[in-house]
């Protein structure tokens, strides 16, 4: 979340609640939304590290609000983040460990494990379809995020099929 907040502040100064709204608007319901407390904590950490700078703004009949803007060091951190290649997804190795090791324990057999895992993935897929249907169809960011999750799941299912073929 640190970098998402930095990115938003690179565009324009904002206070915590505005940042929360901007995140929600951009990513939609598909993205796990940070609560306002997490945002304030992250902002103060960013400020301690000198990546942003806050200034209290007086409000009549309301508590003061703190408006943040990005610093030069913050812009550099952001540039570094963007320039760095992102790690690829990792295979869920906990399931693979179960699949490889469980038969020897006599606790369960591979087919039962695979079937259970497949059902689980399909149920998640159904949940994602519902999420996509509920999300604004014109919110391309949110829809792409959901489609990305769906493609990951499809790959997990294909891999499950390969495990079934090879480990039989």
């Amino acid at each position: 979340m640190r970098l998402a907040l930095l990115a938003l502040l690179a565009k324009e100064p904002a206070h915590g609640y505005e940042l929360k709204q901007a995140l929600e608007q951009t990513f939609g319901a598909a993205y796990p939304q940070p609560n306002i407390g997490q945002i304030y904590v992250t902002l103060s950490r960013l400020e301690q590290n000198g990546l942003i700078q806050g200034q209290d703004v007086n409000q009549s009949r309301r508590p003061n609000k703190r408006v943040y803007e990005i610093t030069e060091a913050g812009r550099e951190a952001l540039a570094g983040w963007v320039a760095e290649p992102t790690e690829g997804p990792r295979v869920r190795d906990e399931f693979f460990m179960k699949l490889v090791l469980a038969p020897a324990t006599g606790v369960t057999d591979r087919l039962a494990l695979i079937n259970k895992q497949r059902r689980h993935y399909l149920n998640i897929m159904r949940g994602l379809s519902r999420l996509a249907a509920a999300e604004d169809r014109n919110n391309r960011v949110a829809q792409l995020l959901i489609e990305g999750a769906m493609l990951h799941l499809q790959a997990d299912l294909d891999w499950l099929e390969r495990c079934q073929e090879e480990l039989d």
Binding site: L111, N123, I124, G127, L128, L131, A149
Partner: peptide, 24 residues
């Protein structure tokens, strides 16, 4: 090999974070 009903996950759909780990 298997024959099963499809249902929504317990959390009713959740978020993409249930599938991919979001970093940052």
């Amino acid at each position: 090999a298997d024959d099963s009903a499809v249902s929504l996950p317990a959390n009713g759909g959740g978020t993409v974070a249930d599938v991919v780990q979001l970093k940052g």
